[in-house]
Design a protein around this nucleic acid. Sequence first.
DNA 1: CCTTGTTTCAAGCAATTGATGGAATCATTT
DNA 2: AAATGATTCCATCAATTGCTTGAAACAAGG
Lengths: 205, 205
Amino acid sequence: MPSSLEKAKQNPDSMKAKILGAARKIFGEYGFHGTTTRMIAKAVNIDISTLYYHWGEKGDLYEAVIMDVTEGMRQKLIEVEKIIKGRPLEERIRIALDEMADYLFENPEISNLTLFRYFTKMRHGSVLDFKVPEYISDIAYSMGLSRDRNNVPFDARMKVLSIMNAIHNFVSGENFFRPMMQVTREEYIREAKNTLKFFNVSAFS
Amino acid sequence: MPSSLEKAKQNPDSMKAKILGAARKIFGEYGFHGTTTRMIAKAVNIDISTLYYHWGEKGDLYEAVIMDVTEGMRQKLIEVEKIIKGRPLEERIRIALDEMADYLFENPEISNLTLFRYFTKMRHGSVLDFKVPEYISDIAYSMGLSRDRNNVPFDARMKVLSIMNAIHNFVSGENFFRPMMQVTREEYIREAKNTLKFFNVSAFS
DNA sequence: CCTTGTTTCAAGCAATTGATGGAATCATTT
DNA sequence: AAATGATTCCATCAATTGCTTGAAACAAGG
């Protein structure tokens, strides 16, 4: 049985999917409390009651957004794992960093929403602590940091967390850092990737 | 002439300072939009109009909070620079990471508020883009990544940003990551420091 | 005690926010 | 065309939010 979210994604022109897309972007920019349902409705040019008709309350829509970006990340990670399979470690790291950085710079809401979830409390005792599949252990396994996929050591998971967050930081921080650095978007992205490799390649060689 | 903020800090028992302290913590946990003036007032056990009497509107209080934590960081960085002066590079890095991590784990609002500023948009066209002294260049210089303190190259600033953010991530993310990792606070902090050193020591040797 | 200035709070206002009910529109089937 | 179900909007609600007013409590001298 396809979930409500899956159905919405099947037809990207459907109203439900359009709302989800706008919600993704706006929740990502302003956070949960910084976003109003009216902001989302306005972005899709609909009445707010139409939004409620499709997604129910704000928290439910937010939940759907989180599930959506998480699923996107999972897909991308599977894709990357296929590309790097069999290559030497350093090359694997370089390719994986490039791929993930490109993907996230194209979909910065993913990084925004992820970091929001990590760092922010919810006023309404976080109904949003629902089960989100974590892929940290999978990445650690894929990087060869653990023999057992289901029992990845603490330090390996912390390393993966550190790497993923480093990418998210550069992506989410672009709006703040780039004016600070006074560089173009292209320069910024290139240097962000270089910096990621600078720390990661040396660490794993 | 001592600013409003400086006066408040002179006497930490003053109502103004107490409000600032509570605001620091709560803005850090919930973000600007997630925080209501009533939440802060309640934490100090005062009426909300007393808060307005001392600090004026919400945005001004938030601004004062940002200035306050920024000043704290600046002081700490000066302190750390004194400690590591003259030592060999690797030792300097290890000590600096330990010191900063300890400081931030004791004052997690600093990391929270910093990351918030980096990653979140404000609905009200960010009156909060006021001038905040950035110390990224100073750190880069202190690490020997640049000869000229006033003209630090792009890649050096990106490296420093990456390091600082890595620390902030572990501090701010504790509430999310620690239950995920199922470790005690002590274990978490120790491993966070280890991970920071793992990436940084190898990169700069 | 009285005055003067400071600090506090109770009450409330206007705007915004999350959310709903019901009428109108649209699409599909018969 | 009539009937049915799905979708959309208008109008509105109650609660919350940022913020202000005016009066009370407090402090310190004279």
